[in-house]
């Protein structure tokens, strides 16, 4: 096991350096002079140019620059935003809870609906339920989620007026946010109606962000269940006279979960990509919207730092999934 963990950790290092290299290269491959792009000023004098060049370190050899960038990154120094002048690191972690809260809710939504849907479909293989569920899953899988979000807004915010269109909570509520998770902070504030407001703001983004993972989990659960249901030990369990519920729910599902957990872990990247669209549409103040806004504002340090932080986050999650997989499935360790 230790060998497995160490070998996984070893592959992490070169990938991390590569990811850093890409985000380092980002500012240098932008069209035009990086100093003018980064300074965002017109009509630079030669002195100012030299000063900026020194400040950003562009006068030194490229490998020295990369080394400094890399050591800075390892100490949490991602530079400062052009717009707010605040460190990218601080901004990222101020906004991250919003994205995390949304992603967790979306994942819970996807798992709670996707697992039972997949199991029901597998157990009723080829019958009406299976077809109906799997057709729905395929529609969900093919869904352009930015359009899905607009449709939900038309129906639930426009016609029915049930949910608000944007933000995390109504403006009449104001309370400190020690955790950054609106649901927890709303409860902690003790204000009447705050939690309800937060929940109403959260419902549509959760559905939108959870739709594709939901479809993927349902499809994956079904195929994993079908595979497991064909195994000998399931036949043995049937022969022993166990109830269908016990066979499907405990014996089969537990083994079918292994590939499903991998899929859940690997959808973190999908979630973050989906968060870009979802947060933009619902004006959700998380890192997805922050990245899109920064790209439009040409706030390059933020784009650079955010890109790197998000990639590292995805890598850490994937690594954790890999390790968990090794724990659950001993066969993987001996490769």
């Amino acid at each position: 096991m230790l060998n497995y963990v160490l070998s996984r950790l070893l592959t992490f290092v070169p990938t991390f350096i590569g990811v850093t290299l890409i985000s380092f290269a980002f500012i240098r491959v932008l069209p035009g002079d990086p100093i003018i792009v980064m300074a965002g000023e017109r009509g630079l004098t030669d002195e100012r140019y030299a000063e900026l060049s020194e400040q950003f370190g562009f006068d030194r050899p490229i490998y020295v620059q990369f080394w400094e960038y890399l050591t800075g990154v390892l100490q949490g120094d991602f530079g400062n935003s052009f717009v707010t002048k605040k460190p990218v690191w601080d901004e990222f972690f101020a906004l991250f809870p919003a994205t995390l809260e949304l992603s967790i809710c979306a994942m819970i939504f996807a798992v709670l609906l996707g697992l039972p849907a997949g199991v029901i479909a597998a157990v009723n293989r080829g019958k009406f339920f299976d077809r109906a569920l799997m057709s729905t899953a395929l529609v969900g899988y093919s869904m352009p989620i930015f359009w899905w979000a607009l449709l939900l807004i038309i129906v639930f915010s426009g016609m029915l007026q049930w949910t608000p269109v944007s933000g995390r909570i109504d403006l009449i509520y104001y309370f400190p946010d020690p955790t950054g998770f609106m649901l927890i902070d709303a409860i902690a504030s003790g204000q009447k109606g705050a939690l309800g407001s937060a929940v109403r703001h959260l419902v549509l983004p959760t559905i939108v962000l959870g739709t594709i993972p939901l479809a993927v989990i349902a499809r994956q659960t079904r195929s994993a269940m079908l595979e497991v249901l064909g195994e000998d030990y399931i036949r043995t369990a049937r022969a022993k006279g166990l109830t269908a519920g016990r066979i499907n729910g405990i014996h089969a599902l537990r083994n079918a979960l292994i590939p499903v957990i991998t899929v859940i872990g690997l959808s973190v990247g999908t979630l973050l990509a989906g968060a870009i669209l979802t947060e933009t549409i619902f004006s959700w103040p998380g890192i997805g919207k922050w990245m899109v806004d920064s790209i439009f504002r040409r706030d390059y340090p933020v784009v650079q730092g955010g890109l790197l932080l998000i990639a590292v986050m995805v890598m850490i999650v994937n690594l954790t999934v890999d390790m968990l997989y090794g724990v659950i499935n001993p066969k993987i360790r001996k490769r």
Partner: peptide, 9 residues
Amino acid sequence: IVLAFPSLL
């Protein structure tokens, strides 16, 4: 390395 970035981003 390429796969570490969310594709849309």
